[in-house]
Design a protein around this nucleic acid. Sequence first.
DNA 1: ATGGCTATGTAGCATAGA
Length: 254
Amino acid sequence: MIIATWNVNSLKVRLPHLLDWLQQRQPDVVCLQETKTEDAKFPADDIRAAGYEVAFSGQKTYNGVAILSKKPVTDVQAGIPGFADEQKRVIAATVEDVRIVCAYIPNGQAVDSEKYHYKLGWLEAFERWLADELKRHAQLAVLGDYNIAPADEDVHDPKAWAGQVLVSERERAAFQRLIALELRDGFRLFEQAEKSYTWWDYRMNAFKRKMGMRIDHILISPELAARCTRCQIDLEPRGWERPSDHTPIWAEFP
DNA sequence: ATGGCTATGTAGCATAGA
C-alpha cells in the first residue's frame, strides 16, 4: 500500500496534474489539502473515473481536504470532534485496517498574530484527538500540510527564518508533542538527500534555487512504522507547468 | 531588496498563502 499527501492549492486548477499523477504513481490512498472547493462542486466523478473512492470536506475559496482511496473508505469523520471550527481542515477515514487522518494545519501568518494563536489552539485540539485515535487504531497515519518545519535541516535558510512562523519554538514544540504521542516522522525513518523540501515559494525561482521548506509530513504509529519500507518526496509535479507550490510525499507499506 | 507569485471572488483590487 502506498499512501500519499499533496497540498494541491486549488483542486479546480490542479485536477489535470492530480489525474496524471494518480495514473503515473498509482498510490492507494491520497490525502489532499487546499482543495478550495465547496462540496457541491467537488470533481468526484473525475476522481471516481480514475479508479478512486473519495471523501471530502470543503468550502469556497479557502482550505478544504479530501481522501482518495482505491479500496473502500469507512468511518469518515470531518473536523476534529469536540472542536468547533468553521474552517474545513480535517477529514479522517479507515481504509482496510489503517486509520487515515488528512489535515491542513493553519498557516499562522506571523508569530503572535491572531492566526498564530488560532494555529496553536488548533494544534492542541488536534493533539488531544490524535491521542484518542491512537488508542483506537494501532495502525494510524496522519498526513498533510503541517505548516511546520520540524528542524533547521528542513529549512533552506535557517538563519533567515529563525523565530518566524513555520519554525518558531512554540510550533516546533507542538509538533514534538505529536511525536511524543508515539508518532514517527515517516520521512526521517530513512536516509534522505540534503535540502529535501515539500514547498517552495512561487516567487524568485525558489524551486530552481532549492529554496524550500519541508512542511508536509506523514506521521505514522509504531506498528505502521515497522511496516514502512520507503518514504519519498516526489519532486516531479513541482516542475510541471502551472504547479502547486507544494509537491507530493508518499510512503510505502508492502 | 519588506518586493518578488498564484488563486479566489469578483469586476479593479483585496485577502491569503508560507
